[in-house]
């Protein structure tokens, strides 16, 4: 294992110093599951113990961790409204295809489709219900 950049578990494991015990436990459990060596797991366990079993130690570590002083960045921008071929479609729920700009079909492919003929029109036509 390489030398950790800091011994403070809040910084070492990128934990928010204001986190509650449940959040800390969840985050460190994930870390422990991803750990590849017993030494790493032992280190994570020691960090967990210092942060959850000893309130005074935890407070000291929280005060000496890198403080969070960044301005909140607020909410992400509203998803853009989408244009579509029909008015009705714009009211439908968004799908994956609505979020990307599809390139036009290559000319070769377009030509290969050829003009729409009767067979194709019949294929796309609504099926009629026939009673036997």
């Amino acid at each position: 294992m390489t030398r950790p950049v800091t011994k403070n578990p809040f910084d070492r494991f990128e934990l928010d110093p204001a986190s509650d015990i449940a959040t800390i436990t969840d985050a460190l459990r994930e870390r422990a599951e991803e750990a590849s060596t017993d030494a790493e797991r032992a280190e994570i366990r020691a960090a967990w113990e210092s942060l959850t079993l000893h309130p005074e130690t935890r407070l000291g570590l929280a005060l000496t961790a890198v403080p969070e002083t960044r301005a909140p960045i607020g909410s992400p921008p509203r998803p853009p409204a989408l244009a579509s071929a029909t008015t009705d479609r714009s009211k439908e729920p968004l799908g994956v295809l609505d979020l990307v700009s599809l390139p036009p079909l290559p000319d070769e492919l377009d030509r290969s489709l050829g003009p729409e003929d009767d067979a194709e029109r019949a294929l796309w036509a609504p099926r009629s219900v026939t009673s036997s």
Partner: peptide, 26 residues
């Protein structure tokens, strides 16, 4: 036609925007 419909890209509508928001600056 079906082919024309398939060729038409689905483009996001131009947003009615007055520039970057304060959140974007942040």
């Amino acid at each position: 036609t079906r082919a024309e419909e398939r060729r038409e890209p689905v483009m996001p509508a131009r947003q009615a925007s007055s520039g970057p928001r304060s959140e974007d600056h942040a």
